[in-house]
Amino acid sequence: MKGLLLKDFYFLFKQMKFFLLLVLIFAVLPQLSSSGFAILYAALLPVTALGYDQRSKWDQFQLMLPCPVRDIVLEKYLFGGLLILVTALISGCAKSIATALDPNVVTGAVFPQLFFICCIAVIFLCMNLPVMFKFGVEKGRLFFIALVVIGVLTVGFFTEDVIRFINQNTALLSFLPVLVAVLSVLVSIPLSIKLYNKNI
């Protein structure tokens, strides 16, 4: 898996420089919504990498390598997870620094909010990947766009409302996003593996 991860990171830093810069800029801006966009975009990158694999025929070749299907599938989840985490951390640090410089610039508790967005991003990733593994990135595009729109709407417009709702309600509810995220990971990965195997 390490080799596959390495390949995806090479792709990221060589092919996607412009977009990485964009993500970085959004991540460090003080508004929560821009961090949201950045983290969500990070969750999209494994799909972009998968699309690139499929276009360059690497996905056909990797079946000839001593990589079990489990590793091939898991690597994309790991790739996404790492990118989400790093983006969130960058965001968090940027906001902490901003708060230290000017306490009025950032509203609300930064880390719980970022954590919530990460959970949404993870759920998003878990919904996307099985579809892409089954239908391929070209065909799964429509589904992908629908998900992006829903994701953007959720993060862009409802985050503050949802967080307020959570804070006003029981502490139990705040565990809900985490629960769903964990569940979606546990369901999505075996599903992806099964769907990928069916294509062979």
Binding site: G3, K7, K14, D53, S56, K57, W58, F61
Partner: peptide, 25 residues
């Protein structure tokens, strides 16, 4: 295995391929 078309991502160079393959084979 050698297939009839090149299947390495366009943006990689032979040096990168070494780094990737080292961790696969």
């Amino acid at each position: 295995v050698v297939l009839d078309e090149s299947y390495f991502p366009d943006v990689l160079n032979p040096q990168n391929v070494n780094a990737v393959m080292k961790n696969i084979y």
